[in-house]
Amino acid sequence: MNIIQIILILLVAGIAGMGSVLDEAQTHRPLVACTLIGLILGDVKTGIILGGTLEMMALGWMNVGLAMAPDTALASVISTLLVINTHTSIGEGIAIAVPLAAAGQALTIFVRTIVVFFVHKGDDFAQKGNYRAIEWMHVIALGLQALRVMIPTGIVLALSTSAVEGVLKSIPTVITGGLQIGGGIIVVVGYAMVINMMDVPELKPFFYLGFLFAAFTKFNLVGFGGLGLILALLYLQLEYSGKNNNSQAAVASAGSSQQSNSSADDDLDDDLDD
């Protein structure tokens, strides 16, 4: 590795670290971060394959409310780095990535706690009308999130490759193979997170419908997306038109809440007609 590669790797580490908190451009997702590291190290193919493998494990890992998902930024950057530099397999990559995702999560929680201090500083600056200082507080907080991934990456870069390789190669195959099996199953945790987020009992049948369709047909994902969209539109049409008729038929018995509902629905129908 030459000095330019080292600088670029640290740069990608920083971008992934910031991406992990911002959740905007998705640079922290394995599919992007692993590919970039692979590109820098001259083995983009390994980067892409590892990225795809880790991405499949992490589908549905997300930050909702104040809950933090395991961190894909640190896991992607360091695991790709080690797999390519020590010429180990994807299985070893997963073995490294999993504990790193946990470590990365702990680190981001740590940073998000420290940032409280900068926010209090920001309060003081707001009182004084010093908007530029508030901007700085915000940017420093973001910078800490970049360092959170850059520093561990730097430490790994400083380690001797042969020593790391020795450690990785000494992992018994039953462990790496087992982790690879686990990697195929682990994705259910993400699915479960997504399902719990949309926890509406009367919509649950759509989940089972999707499952059955996939089990017995050969639709691809685009097909499922389109089918899901059509089902959603049909459901909404039926649900809301049904309510409208009912409330018109039974105005006398309907409570005030029912009436306000139906008037809202009329607005919606008007909107839809636009």
Partner: peptide, 14 residues
């Protein structure tokens, strides 16, 4: 509701 239906349906497939 619409987004949840698409989401749940696709999750089932996944």
């Amino acid at each position: 509701e619409g987004a949840s239906i698409v989401g749940l349906f696709v999750m089932g497939a996944l």
